[in-house]
């Protein structure tokens, strides 16, 4: 027995509170919180501030719960990918059973309390989001189709719709278009990243478009989704959540985003490698600003509208 093993604590690998929190995918949760908050505030019905706070919190907890269930199911592929190998389950900090128990408990908690705090339409949408992300995406389609990013993006697109439903109790054109904004934004955002970052999805046998259909097809896919995104994003400006700030922001950002997507589609790998994927990297950075600025503009227009600036 070595000296080191004599002094090694048997509790060294025991989970800390942060490990359980990491199961909820806090980085993904920030997008959920922001977009749900915008959906809630953009709605034409006022909500009591404390109820609004609780609604966003329960939506975030529901999103976190689906993250825990995703980690429970995907622990085998997380273990073989460098990016995910340090997650609590592959790192040996939290057991799969614990992750399953936390995920299921928090899912039920979030749905029931969102229903009690606001209404059952919002709660139903949250329950469907968790089901969609865990069963449809994680368990069924993620390992089956290279369109997995599109399907996963749908799950991440529900929060503004749930926020809207928490305030109004229904689903409207504006809330569906807010869903479409994140849904159609996810594929070009992720595929641009996949073009310049070497991902080890192959080791995990997860089909990625760049591998199954090639990088040329991925470039074309980025352009198609960006065109569709521009139509829906600008269309959202003509609904009740749109205003001058949103329309101006959307027109400018979609023009820039389309320009970037056209450049990506026209380039080949030799050109991209020659300038170290400069255009793809710029497009990816713009995609981060794109989503934040669109939802931010909705928030600004809602604020200005409440202050009576637009009459």
């Amino acid at each position: 027995m070595s000296d080191a093993s004599l002094h090694a604590s048997p509790y060294e690998n025991e989970a800390q509170f942060g490990d359980y929190f990491a199961l909820l995918k806090p980085r993904v949760m920030t997008l959920v919180v922001f977009t749900a908050f915008v959906g809630l505030l953009a709605a034409p019905v006022g909500v009591h501030p404390f109820i609004g706070f609780c609604a966003v919190l329960f939506i975030a907890v529901g999103g976190g719960a689906s993250g825990a269930l995703n980690m429970w199911y995907d622990s085998d592929i997380d273990a073989v990918m460098k990016r995910t190998a340090k997650r609590p389950i592959p790192a040996g900090k939290v057991s799969r059973d614990e992750a399953l128990a936390i995920g299921l408990t928090l899912s039920v908690f979030a749905v029931v309390f969102l229903g009690l705090a606001t209404n059952w339409v919002a709660a139903g949408l949250l329950a469907f989001t968790i089901f969609f992300y865990v069963v449809i995406y994680t368990m069924w389609l993620k390992r089956l189709t290279p369109q997995n990013i599109v399907i996963g993006g749908a799950a991440g697109a529900f929060p503004p719709m749930i926020g809207w439903a928490a305030a109004t109790g229904d689903i409207s054109t504006a809330s569906v278009l807010m869903f479409c904004l994140t849904f159609l934004w996810t594929p070009p955002h992720f595929w641009a990243l996949a073009l310049f970052v070497r991902m080890d999805y192959d080791n995990a046998t997860v089909p990625m478009l760049t591998v199954t259909h090639g990088r040329r097809a991925t470039r074309r896919h980025i352009l198609v989704y960006t065109v569709l995104l521009a139509i829906f994003a600008i269309g959202l400006g003509f609904t009740q959540v749109g205003g001058p700030v949103y329309l101006g922001t959307s027109l400018l950002l979609n023009a820039l985003f389309l320009k970037g997507a056209v450049q990506i589609a026209r380039r080949d790998e030799a050109q991209a490698e020659a300038d170290s994927y400069k255009v793809e990297k710029k497009f990816f950075k713009l995609s981060l600003l794109y989503l934040f600025a669109h939802f931010g503009a909705i928030l600004v227009d809602a604020g200005l509208d409440r202050l009576g600036v637009w009459g």
Binding site: A15, Q16, Y20, F50, I51, L116
Partner: peptide, 29 residues
């Protein structure tokens, strides 16, 4: 063992306290 679990116990305690505060606040509203 107790030292290592202190952080976890404080975390769980704070979550439970926040849960009570939220339910109380919701009821009042």
């Amino acid at each position: 063992l107790h030292k290592r679990r202190r952080g976890r116990n404080i975390g769980v305690g704070l979550v439970l306290a926040a849960f009570i505060a939220i339910i109380f606040g919701l009821t009042v509203v």
